[in-house]
C-alpha cells in the first residue's frame, strides 16, 4: 500500500476552521466569566469581549454558510449509517490493536461517518441554538413598558440556561475533538492537514481494502482554486 500527499482543506476552509476555533475558545473563556465561574478579564471587559467575538463569529458563520452552499461542500455532512458502527468500534477497540482505520479520508469525502454525524449536529443544532439564544441574550431588553411589547421577553432564565448548556456542549466537543485529531495516520497528521491543507493518505489503489467514507459521494471537487487542485505527491 502506497501513500500520497493530497490537498484536502482549501485556504478558506482552514481560515474558517481556525477562526471559528479561536472565536469559540475565546467565547467560552469570556462566557464562563460572565457566567460567574471565574475572574479573568474583569466582568465588564468579559461582557464586552464576548459581544464583539459573538458578532465576529456570526459574520464568519455567514461566510461559511455561503461557502458551503456555493462549493457544494455541505454534502460532506450528509449523515450515513454505513460504517458508523465500524468507526465507533475502531475508536473503542480497533485503535488499540493497530487495526487500520475502517474508513479512508479523501478530498471528496473528508469526514468519517461519526464526524459527519457530530459536525452535522453542531451545524444544525448546537451552533444555531447558541447563536439564537446569544442574540436574544444580547438584545434582551428586560420587561419594559417603553419598547415594543411583542419583543419583550419576560425572563432571561430560559435563554441563559439554554446558552449555558450549549456552552458546556461546545466545551465537551472541543476536548473530544482536539484529542481525536491525534488519532490520524500519525499523532499530528490531522493537525498538519488543517494547517497546511495537505495530508498524507493511503493511496487509493485498486486493491484498497479500506472502503470509501460515507455516502453519497460529493460530485464536485473540493478545491475552488485551480492552482490547488488535488495534487499527488509521491511519498512512498
Amino acid at each position: 500500500m502506497s501513500e500520497k500527499k493530497v490537498y484536502i482543506y482549501t485556504r478558506f476552509e482552514r481560515f474558517w476552521h481556525w477562526m471559528q476555533a479561536m472565536l469559540i475558545f475565546f467565547l467560552l473563556l469570556t462566557g464562563f466569566e460572565v457566567h460567574g465561574s471565574y475572574k479573568f478579564f474583569g466582568y465588564d471587559q468579559a461582557v464586552r469581549y464576548h459581544a464583539v467575538a459573538a458578532y465576529a463569529l456570526i459574520v464568519l458563520i455567514a461566510f461559511a454558510i455561503f461557502w458551503h452552499a456555493v462549493t457544494g461542500q455541505w454534502k460532506q455532512y450528509v449523515p450515513t449509517r454505513k460504517m458508523l458502527t465500524a468507526q465507533l468500534r475502531y475508536y473503542i477497540l480497533g485503535i488499540f490493536r493497530d487495526e487500520p482505520h475502517p474508513t479512508r479520508k479523501t478530498a471528496l469525502s473528508k469526514l468519517n461517518p461519526l464526524q459527519r454525524l457530530v459536525y452535522l449536529g453542531l451545524k444544525i443544532l448546537v451552533i444555531p441554538v447558541m447563536v439564537i439564544s446569544g442574540v436574544l441574550y444580547m438584545l434582551y431588553r428586560y420587561p419594559s413598558s417603553h419598547g415594543v411589547a411583542a419583543i419583550n421577553v419576560d425572563s432571561l432564565t430560559f435563554i441563559a440556561v439554554l446558552h449555558t448548556a450549549g456552552a458546556f456542549a461546545l466545551a465537551f466537543f472541543i476536548i473530544a475533538h482536539v484529542y481525536l485529531t491525534t488519532t490520524g495516520r500519525t499523532v499530528t497528521s490531522n493537525l498538519e492537514a488543517m494547517m497546511t491543507g495537505y495530508e498524507v493518505i493511503e493511496d487509493d489503489t485498486p486493491d484498497g481494502e479500506a472502503p470509501e467514507r460515507g455516502e453519497p459521494r460529493p460530485d464536485e471537487t473540493t478545491s475552488d482554486h485551480p492552482e490547488h487542485a488535488p495534487e499527488i505527491a509521491a511519498n512512498a
Binding site: 457566567h35 432571561l156 465537551f172 476536548i175 473530544a176
Partner: peptide, 28 residues
C-alpha cells in the same frame, strides 16, 4: 424572581455540564 448573569445558574445544567467535561477529560 429573575435571572441575573453571574449570580444565577441552573444547578442541573451546572452539574451535568461539569460532569460531562470531567468525563470528556477523563475519557481522553
Amino acid at each position: 424572581g429573575f435571572y441575573m448573569p453571574g449570580r444565577d445558574r441552573s444547578e442541573t445544567v451546572e452539574r451535568i455540564g461539569k460532569l460531562a467535561l470531567l468525563i470528556a477529560l477523563g475519557g481522553v
